[in-house]
Design a protein around this nucleic acid. Sequence first.
DNA 1: TTTATATATTGATAAGTGTCTATATAGAAT
DNA 2: ATTCTATATAGACACTTATCAATATATAAA
Lengths: 105, 105
Amino acid sequence: MTINQMISEDEVALMHHYICEGIGDAKRLRLLYLVAEQPRNVTELTELLDVTQPTVSHHLRILRERGLVNAERDGTSIYYTLGDPRILEAMNILRSFVADKTQEA
Amino acid sequence: MTINQMISEDEVALMHHYICEGIGDAKRLRLLYLVAEQPRNVTELTELLDVTQPTVSHHLRILRERGLVNAERDGTSIYYTLGDPRILEAMNILRSFVADKTQEA
DNA sequence: TTTATATATTGATAAGTGTCTATATAGAAT
DNA sequence: ATTCTATATAGACACTTATCAATATATAAA
């Protein structure tokens, strides 16, 4: 059970930077789920995402800078993986919340 | 343990709407933590947030429309509470991730 | 050293949104 | 009814950012 200690304004700012700005876009959320399934390179991710390659690289940079994904080069390709299992863990909790919300209607 | 089943594009869109748009702002993240501590009315939240009352109401509306907070009237005041414990649960997991990241330096 | 492929960066633009002031609405009290 | 307090809404503006086309960089192969 996690402790609910009062959070400081500074810590909120950090969380905003790492998390809110990190997953604050639908494409990036999708990217996180895709690289959580298996390592994927930029070309694969571009084919799956319906945006241009520079846009994918842009999103990956944002995720990478925050440690939400890791990048590893293999030849000319760069394979991306999930940066931390807690990311998926938290997303799945939120996913179950959303699932309940949308079937409340 | 949560199951990591492939997520559809539609589900990503829903998650983006409920979660990313919901917590995609530092003030709203702060609001969620504040109402998680205890029920608070708009006046209290305004004093704690360093923005105007209409701005607080604006953020609360976004949170309320997504079920991230609940609103209950008591006289002229309206008290806000956390909409679902899973919100805090997920936030705390992400909080621990951010804590680790920021002390890696 | 070219050539080809994969990824990243730059600069521009359009769309979205957080914030404010001003105003409206709702409930309680006189 | 009027006044007061609490909250919500409307409209405007500044700022951010997602996206694209064009270009640069990096690795591998010929």
